[in-house]
Write a protein that binds this DNA or RNA. Sequence first.
DNA 1: GTGTCTGCAAATTATTTGCACGTTG
DNA 2: CAACGTGCAAATAATTTGCAGACAC
Lengths: 135, 135
Amino acid sequence: MTHVEILKKHNLKATPQRLSILNTLEMYGHVTLEEIEKYTKVNFPTLSLSTIYRNINEMIKKNVVSEVKITNSKDYFEINKEKHAHLICKECGKIEDFKIDTQDIVKNIQSLTNDKIIDATLNFEVICKECLSGK
Amino acid sequence: MTHVEILKKHNLKATPQRLSILNTLEMYGHVTLEEIEKYTKVNFPTLSLSTIYRNINEMIKKNVVSEVKITNSKDYFEINKEKHAHLICKECGKIEDFKIDTQDIVKNIQSLTNDKIIDATLNFEVICKECLSGK
DNA sequence: GTGTCTGCAAATTATTTGCACGTTG
DNA sequence: CAACGTGCAAATAATTTGCAGACAC
């Protein structure tokens, strides 16, 4: 689905500002607010910070974008895709998506509590292969 | 270990301010900054916000306290204990500690990536037993 | 054309800092 | 008593909001 289609599907007008924000998210995968500002302004110098805030919040509310919170670091944002976990390199800080079925984990864990587990947010601290190989 | 001992062990002087913050964390388990301010000031009305900020940050740096980041909610703080996961009730918002060995999960997952997995931060969205039973 | 969106400036909220004084070990 | 910690006020940073004009559909 194109970004235009995604926006329309969620009753958001496909403005150039929104498209450029989504484009930045697409290109960089996981970005902080300042990074969105920095990278997006390269191609869209007149974009204002308040528009970024308004749109990120709006798109989060509509489930187009989601927030990735990582201990001891800033908040990141990503385009909403299939559910996945994150691998966060302790050394270089890179964040990678990690496609595992979180429901598998949920099933394994469910027997350990009386609460009904609905879903899981999983962040793994890693040393990524590049850092491991000393690159 | 008492709070005084914990602080000394980390080269932090055991001031009444720090002890009262730790006491609030102990009593409530997981608290936001505003909650720390609110609850702590009941017994310590002169405590200043900047002292709370300074000490929370200091204690995080020294691993006395840790930050709990949950998608779509404020940051919480807790006293550092054995590694554990969190169960977050979608309905009432309550956060419970969930004592599972995160290393077990790490082991199960390690074969799926070439990154070296060091540790895991696990948050489970749940409906807690109280909400389930309609209380 | 109408309702939504944007940029700007101003308001509000959150966090940090400098400094003079108090306290801990 | 020396180093460290605190409160206060001021500085800075982060986020939100009101409004007038612009744009998407």
